[in-house]
Write a protein that binds this DNA or RNA. Sequence first.
DNA 1: ATTGCTGCAAAACGTTTGCACCTAT
DNA 2: ATAGGTGCAAACGTTTTGCAGCAAT
Lengths: 151, 151
Amino acid sequence: MKNKQAEDIFRNFLRAGKNRITPERFEVLEAALEYEGHFGADDLYILMKNFKSRVSRATVYKTLELLAQCDLLSKRNFGDNINRFESSFKRQIHDHLICVDCGKIIEFADPRIKQLPEEISEDLGFNFESYSFNIFARCKDPKKCKQSRER
Amino acid sequence: MKNKQAEDIFRNFLRAGKNRITPERFEVLEAALEYEGHFGADDLYILMKNFKSRVSRATVYKTLELLAQCDLLSKRNFGDNINRFESSFKRQIHDHLICVDCGKIIEFADPRIKQLPEEISEDLGFNFESYSFNIFARCKDPKKCKQSRER
DNA sequence: ATTGCTGCAAAACGTTTGCACCTAT
DNA sequence: ATAGGTGCAAACGTTTTGCAGCAAT
C-alpha cells in the first residue's frame, strides 16, 4: 500500500474493463513503480523472483501491458528490440537520448517537440495516439562513457 | 549493375573496413534497393529465396547491417520488435507515422524537426549520431483503414 | 597462404500461448 | 456458478552464432 493513488487508478481501470482485481496484478504494479529507470519485462520478473515473489512470467508480461494501457507506465523502445517500461505516474512527458557507446539513457523535455506529434497527425488526416522520439549519440566526455551500461 | 552509384559507395565502404567484396553482398544490395517500402530482414530473405537466390539468411542479416552502416539503408524500428530497413539512397530525411489500426506507414518531412536532434545532443554534451521519430495514430477515414496491412 | 565470408542448422533471445487448475465476482 | 486469471512449460518469430568448407585478397 505504498502508492494508494496509483493503486486506485489501476483498480478503476481494471473495473472499467471486465478485468479482475487480483493480488498478483498489484504486486507487479508495486514492483514496477519502485523500479528506478527503464526496465524490460524480464528484468522485473527476475527482480521479483529474487525477492521470492511467486508471480509468473506470464502474469508480469500481461500486467505490464495493462499498466501501460492505463498510463501508469510508458512503454519505450530504444531500437534494440526490447520493450522497456518506466513509471509515468506523476512524471512529466519526456524523450530520451541514448549513448550508443555506453548505453546510458538521458531524459529530456524540449518544449519545441510538445505539439508537433498532434499537429502532424492532424495535418496528415489521423487521430494522434502517441509518439516516440529517441536521439542516439555519443558521450563527449570519454571518462563518463564506456564505464557503465545503465538502462 | 542497376545501381552503379550505390554499388560504388558500398564497394568503397567495404574496402575502407577490412571487409571483402563478395557477389552475395551485392546481391543483397540490389534486392534491398529494389524493395518498395519498409522490409524486415526476413522479408527480404524470403523474397530472394522466391527468386531462387542461394544467399543464406545469415548473409542477408549481416549484409543489411553493413548497408545500414554506410547509409545506403536506414534501419527503422516501429515499436513492434522487428527491425525494418528502407533504402535511403538518394532519398531525403523523413520520419514516420504509423496507423495503430491498420499498420499503414506514412512518411513525412517536417522542417521543424530537422535541427532538433543535433541541437539537443549538443546541449546535453553528446555528439549526435542519429535519431528516430515515430508518431502512432489512427486513420480518420475508416474506409481507408483496416483494409490493408502495408508495411 | 591467409583471413574473412558463406551456408547450414542450432541456439539464443524476448515474448506469447495453451492448458489445467484456481479465484474473484 | 462462471468468466476470467494464474503458473508452468512449450511454442513462437526474429535474430545471432558455431563451425566446416570456400573464396577474396
